[in-house]
C-alpha cells in the first residue's frame, strides 16, 4: 500500500480498447467496489469523448505525487533563517515561494505565524479544504468527522490528543477554511537550533506542525 509506482502497469490503467489488458485493481485480489467501477467507467468515457486524455490523467497523477509537505517545510526553514523572507511569506506566500522556484498555484495560501503568545490551528469544518499545493493530500484524520467537529470548539483537547499541550497563557486561533483562502501554520523555530543548516531545519518541520496540531521537534531530539 505504501509504495505505488505510476508507470504503465500500476498507475493509470490501460485504456487502449484494442489491447484489453485487464484493468489494474487497487488491491490485487479484491473485487472492485461500486465506486471504483464508476471511476473507471467515467475515466474511460471522458477519454473516449476526448474531454480528457489518458496522458493528461497520468501527468496529473504524477504532478499530485510530486506535491508533498517537503514544499511547506522548505518555506518554513527559509523563513526561520531569513526574516525578510518570513515577512514576504506572510505578506504574499505565492510571490515569496517563487524565490525558491516554487509555484503554489492560483488559490491564495495565508501563512499564519506562531509566536510565544499565539498558536494557530487549521481546520475545514464544512468539507476538507487544505493547503494542498504546500502539503499534498490531507491525512485521513484531517478529513475525519471528529476533527471537523471538535477542532473548532475544543481545540485544546484536540491538540492534547496529538500530544500538544499548550499553556492557557497562549492564545489559540483556529482558522476555519470556509471559502477561497487556504492556510498554513508557520511554526516557531525550536530552541537550540541556532547552528543548524536550512536543510536540517526543514527536516524538523513536519506536516502536522504546518497544520498546527504539533510543534517542531527539538534540535537535540532529531
Amino acid at each position: 500500500m505504501s509504495d505505488h509506482h505510476h508507470g504503465h502497469s500500476h498507475g493509470v490503467y490501460d485504456v487502449d480498447p484494442l489491447h484489453h489488458h485487464p484493468p489494474q485493481p487497487d488491491l490485487e485480489d479484491t473485487p472492485l467496489t461500486h465506486h471504483q467501477i464508476m471511476q473507471m467507467a467515467v475515466a474511460e468515457l471522458l477519454i473516449e469523448k476526448e474531454i480528457i486524455s489518458a496522458e493528461e490523467l497520468r501527468k496529473e497523477i504524477d504532478f499530485m505525487d510530486s506535491i508533498t509537505p517537503v514544499r511547506g517545510s522548505k518555506l518554513v526553514a527559509r523563513a526561520w533563517t531569513d526574516n525578510g523572507f518570513k515577512d514576504r511569506l506572510i505578506a504574499d506566500s505565492k510571490a515569496a515561494a517563487t524565490e525558491l522556484d516554487m509555484d503554489i498555484g492560483p488559490i491564495p495560501i495565508l501563512v499564519m505565524e506562531n509566536t510565544p503568545q499565539v498558536h494557530n490551528l487549521i481546520v475545514c469544518t464544512l468539507c476538507s479544504c487544505y493547503p494542498r499545493m504546500l502539503l499534498g493530500i490531507p491525512p485521513d484524520w484531517y478529513k475525519s468527522r471528529s476533527y471537523r467537529r471538535r477542532a473548532i470548539s475544543e481545540p485544546r483537547k484536540v491538540l492534547s490528543e496529538f500530544g500538544t499541550d499548550l499553556s492557557n497563557d497562549v492564545q489559540i486561533k483556529v482558522h476555519d477554511s470556509t471559502a477561497d483562502m487556504r492556510y498554513m501554520v508557520l511554526p516557531m523555530r525550536p530552541e537550540g537550533s541556532d547552528d543548524m543548516s536550512e536543510e536540517d531545519l526543514a527536516g524538523l518541520v513536519t506536516r502536522d506542525c504546518m497544520i498546527g496540531v504539533a510543534l517542531p521537534g527539538s534540535a537535540s531530539a532529531s
Binding site: P155, N168, Q171, K173, V174, D176, A179
Partner: peptide, 29 residues
Amino acid sequence: PMYRVQFNQTDMWPDYSGAPQDKVEIELY
C-alpha cells in the same frame, strides 16, 4: 467581497473550556 472575521471562542460556545483570549477566524462573504 469576502472577509476574514474573528470571533471570541467564549462567544461562540457557551461552555468553552479553553482560555478566554482564544479566537476563531472564518472567511465570510
